[in-house]
Design a protein around this nucleic acid. Sequence first.
RNA 1: CGGGGCGUGGCGCAGUUUGGUAGCGCACUUGGUUUGGGACCAAGGGGCCGCAAGUUCGAAUCUUGUCGCCCCGACCA
Length: 466
Amino acid sequence: MDEDFAKWYTDIVKKAELVDYSSVKGCVILRPYAYALWENIQGALDCMFKETGHENVYMPLLIPESLLQKEKDHVEGFAPEVAWVTHGGSEKLTERLCIRPTSETLFCEHYSHVVQSYRDLPKLYNQWCSVLRWEKTTRPFLRHREFLWQEGHTIHETAEEAKAETLQMLDVYARLAEEYLAMPVVKGQKTDKEKFAGAVSTYTIECMMHDGRALQSGTSHYFGDGFAKAFEIVFTGRDNKLSYPHQTSWGLSTRVIGGIIMTHGDDSGLVLPPKIAPVQLVIIPVAMHREGVLEKARELRNTLKAAGIRVKLDDSDNSPGWKFSEYEMKGVPLRLEIGPRDIEAGACVLARRDNGEKAPASLEGIADTVKSMLDAVQAALYAKAKENLTRNTVDARTLDEAKELTKDSAKFVRAMWCGGEACEDAFKEEAGMTSRCVPFEGGGVSGACACCGKQAEKLVYWGVAY
RNA sequence: CGGGGCGUGGCGCAGUUUGGUAGCGCACUUGGUUUGGGACCAAGGGGCCGCAAGUUCGAAUCUUGUCGCCCCGACCA
């Protein structure tokens, strides 16, 4: 995997039966295992959305061209990668319809219909859907043309409320990443160059992959009242005057599955965090046609299932060795072996996917044993990823220093920035790194811009992005 | 958009240089023996070689065109 990370990655997504390619570039088939993973991520996120007062809705797939064009920056940002529907049957349409690349415009149009008074605010909506962006280069999970995501769209009475919402949802993403996906994050704000088309400000969680490169794993945008003005969304305020509301949007996609693979995977395949693994424990019977083995295995499955563990019993005819490899490839966190020897001893063998440790365990209280091991695996994965992040985050006082520090492998470079786009471009051109974010946390490295030497207040995380 | 690679049973590939009845491994089906790190024996089934046109007595192989996929880079919400 360290020799050719890109090849390792594309091999894994195929071998672990996550995806299949379709006949359209960038439109990828999510096989049951990948979809189950996505459903678990969805479940965790959706629950957090509901806890914070959000409601799910569904907007149409198609956006009339005139609607897309209402907000200038937004359309400029997305127009180059929009796909169009031009015909209905054999009839040419009077107006082209775009397949949504994102749904701000649809939400805005709807809000303009349903918001009249401050009493109608806020609206805290989310939708689970797919969007289409005609990307030139594609990679499974990391960059699809069509991809599954959720997009939250909220509208508020005041700017303060909308800003608070933007940051709250960034925190929700950070919690998902760290607590469920075991991916430590750097939270921060995007520079103007990197922010969302049409946003006042964009916030991001940036994760570090095994190879030191950065993956933008979730973004949250504050729109101010720019969209409201463009779409003529107005409401009567508490002061009986007409006002523009303030909006946010935030999104997280199946891209995080790519993040999970590249954060935790190893030479034997996937390694999945227990909290979102479709199968948390696989039972592999050994010499299973012998008297009592399969019966015991089934009994164990039922016991563990009843304890709320996602368990699979593989009673197929493949050899145990084959099954070991198979479930390692698929990243199943725990493996339970049960054979005649174990049954004799009232025990089984438990093996951890993350570190390969294998040890006998008593069948007495097996559910509790498994649960605490799952917790241990979850914690170990986070700790290992955190260690990788820390080890590969370096400080640089100058651009040259940044180049020197990253010449052998990609890293996060913390360096000061004056705020000028020229210096941002220089980093890209000379060091191959883009600004990932201006972090919320962490002190300054120095007082001068690493590029031009002028006075600088902003600390920036620079990195090579996926 | 530039560079490179590749399209041959489900998967991975050989065969193409030098045209002559489409092959190998895995997977699959049936029967049997096995089972603690990708088991073994036996018998089977499955492909008009991405698509189109051309050259030829004859094309997976030569020519032209075309479609698509993968990788690296550039570009990009």
